[in-house]
């Protein structure tokens, strides 16, 4: 049994296709990551799966319920923490929780017990009677997660859960999300554009770019796809260097990005000397050279040909366009 099944899901805004033919399945109890730059279609996907936005075409089942036909049951099965804040700042933390509990028709006695329990869990119980407008960003996020869990959803959507949080709070939240998944067996779908986050938390990751899934696997397997280690070289004569390097048989692949040359190679340490020699033989200057184990960043680069930062810049224009279309 799958927690989520998505088949050929499409969402268009006018001429712009935000989500383009997505197909994936998420097992129960899995932590699944949608990784991609801003504007890649992650939030649009979450919005459709949480019944907030109708799909243009395709099918999706959440907890076995059809998102277009059985919205009420879908809504009962899911908890969601939106990318943007969705708390009532005039109300206290307790009142925000209580409002949520009443909306999900949780009987009074259970409701009170659970609210107290969850607020203790996210360490906000002492401040439960303070208005949310006095809370910091991290506290708000924790409150939103606690709220999303109040009705005991089987599936929890976290849309950029740690966006804009300081590293300490972020780590704290990560531990907490892991705990939730292990102890309660909740299926978690999270979107992020932090490589680290996906790497640490997710059992499987779908890399999504321009509305399409371009790779989907465990973090380990995705990294292995690159083939060994990664050597990044910054050189002013990168084109000359590039053609020189291409002749080396050990090198699995050489790619050019911005002013950088990225080389995928097994056991990089043994080959660095060779590479540097080639540079000096051809009178090519090297500004810097680094060797590292592949990260998801490299995976993204490998599959899309762009770094995630290059993507962000062009995504902004796309977002603007999308807003215009939606306003019409």
């Amino acid at each position: 049994m799958y927690a989520i099944e998505v088949e050929n899901l499409v969402r268009k805004f006018g001429d712009f296709t935000a989500v383009n033919d997505l197909t994936f399945r998420i097992k129960k109890g899995e932590v699944f990551g949608l990784l991609g730059p801003n504007g890649a279609g992650k939030t649009t996907t979450i919005s459709m799966l949480s019944t907030m936005l109708p799909s243009t075409s395709g099918k999706a089942f959440v907890n076995g319920f059809d998102i277009s036909k059985d919205q009420d049951n879908v809504r009962k099965s899911i908890g969601i923490v939106f990318q943007d804040q969705s708390l009532d700042e005039e109300l206290t933390a307790y009142e925000n929780m209580d409002f949520h509990g009443r909306l999900y028709r949780i009987p009074k006695s259970t409701r009170q017990k659970k609210i107290a329990h969850l607020l203790k869990l996210v360490e906000l119980y002492d401040k439960k009677d303070n208005q949310v407008k006095t809370y910091s960003g991290g506290m708000r996020r924790r409150l939103e997660i606690a709220r999303g869990l109040l009705h005991e959803p089987q599936i929890l959507f976290l849309d950029e859960p740690t966006l804009g949080l300081d590293p300490q709070t972020r780590n704290h939240l990560w531990d907490y999300i892991e705990k939730l998944n292990k102890e309660k067996g909740i299926t978690i779908i999270l979107t992020t554009h932090y490589m680290e986050e996906a790497d640490k938390l997710c059992h499987r990751i779908a890399i999504i770019d321009k509305g399409k899934i371009i790779a989907m696997d465990s973090s380990e397997n995705l990294k292995n796809d690159i083939g060994g280690d990664v050597i990044t070289i910054d050189s002013s004569q990168r084109d000359v260097f590039y053609s020189a390097l291409k002749t080396l048989p050990e090198i699995k692949s050489v790619e050019l990005h911005d002013s950088l040359i990225t080389i995928s190679i097994q056991n990089a340490e043994q080959h660095v000397a060779r590479i540097v020699n080639i540079a000096s033989e051809n009178n090519i200057g090297i500004k810097s050279l680094s060797i590292h184990k592949p990260t998801l960043e490299d995976v993204f680069l490998h599959f899309t040909g762009r770094t995630i930062r290059e993507e962000e810049a062009s995504a902004k224009d796309k977002m603007r366009m999308m807003r215009k279309v939606r306003r019409r």
């Binding site: 009420d72 009962k76 804040q85 700042e89 949520h100």
Partner: peptide
């Protein structure tokens, strides 16, 4: 604008 409406709209009501 402050996002609270989402919280109500995503509930099973």
């Amino acid at each position: 604008q402050f996002g609270f409406l989402k919280e109500t709209l995503v509930a099973p009501v």
